[in-house]
Computed example of a mutant assay.
Amino acid sequence: METVEVDGLRIAYQRVGHGPPLVLFHGAGEDSRIWRRQLEGLSDDFTVFAWDAPGCGQSDDPTLGFSAEEFGAVAAGFLRAAVPENPYILGLSWGSMLALELYRGYPEIPASLVLASAYAGWAGSLPPEEVERRYAQVLAEIDLPPEKFVEEWLPTLFTDKADPAVVAEASGIMAGVRPAGMRALLSASGRADYRPVLPTITVPTLLLYGADDQRSPLYVAHELHRQIPGSRLSVIPDVGHLAQMEAPDAFNTEVRNFLRGIAAG
């Protein structure tokens, strides 16, 4: 792991490969380890950066009341400190909300967006009662030992056809979740609505989903596709929310082909 300091926070990240920079933003309850197959599989074409968000992995915990705008500012500061040029941004789940927050505040930074298993914020994509159910569930779980709730998350993240070793790997990563990190992510993003950002996006954008995603269903994908001008929607059959783990070859191929197309002009 390498580190940089951004706004007083030590931010840890992995960097591998050579080529144009591709930056990976993980989801809630995760860290950069969730991207192992992308760090391995895409580093032949790209310099791949995978950060640990504030409160996750080996990065410092944010302060109490850390806002969505502050997450966006730290992400922008990280990119300026660690990445040599305008990067391709890939955000997964909560990381897709962070990518939209980054674009909202700093539209000059991303060269393109890949929004995987994405939302326009929970409040921007889900019915109000589902937003409140999820918010209350995570709030109740924050101070519990991770083994008390991670096993309940897993069936909503993978299909029943997923390799048990992959599911176990994800479980081990999520077992490292920290209350301070989850509290900050929930407070900043639990009721976020990024629908106003979507029609302002002018960079090439790929929406990448698993066909059987329970957490961000395909109706969410189609609505983002409708609202983001010129966006492309790709659906990977027979996989769930953590498509980058369940079907890494298909996921990496979609990302690689999209970014190669941008580079080819």
Rank of each mutant, 00 (worst) to 15 (best):
E2T: 12
T3M: 15
V4S: 06
E5V: 14
G8K: 06
L9C: 08
I11E: 09
A12M: 08
Q14L: 04
R15E: 15
H18M: 12
P20S: 14
P21Q: 06
V23K: 03
L24N: 05
L24H: 06
L24A: 02
H26G: 06
E30K: 01
R33A: 05
E40S: 08
D44Y: 06
T47D: 13
G55S: 12
D61V: 04
E70T: 05
A76L: 11
F78P: 05
R80M: 08
R80C: 05
A81E: 15
P87Q: 09
Y88K: 01
G91T: 03
R104E: 11
A111F: 04
V114Y: 08
V114D: 05
A116R: 00
A118L: 03
Y119L: 15
Y119H: 11
S125F: 00
R134E: 12
R134F: 13
Y135T: 12
A136P: 04
V138Y: 11
L139N: 15
E141M: 07
K148E: 15
F149Y: 15
E151C: 14
E151L: 14
P155H: 12
K161Y: 04
A162G: 00
D163T: 03
D163A: 01
A168I: 02
A168T: 14
A168E: 15
A170V: 08
I173L: 11
P179E: 11
G181F: 06
R183M: 03
R183N: 06
A184T: 07
L185W: 12
G190V: 03
R191F: 13
P196C: 09
L207K: 04
L208C: 01
L208S: 10
S216E: 09
S216W: 04
V220N: 03
A221S: 08
H225S: 08
R226M: 14
I228R: 01
P229V: 12
S231N: 12
L242D: 07
L242K: 04
M245S: 06
E246D: 07
D249R: 07
E254Q: 10
R256I: 08
N257Y: 11
F258R: 01
F258E: 03
A263P: 13
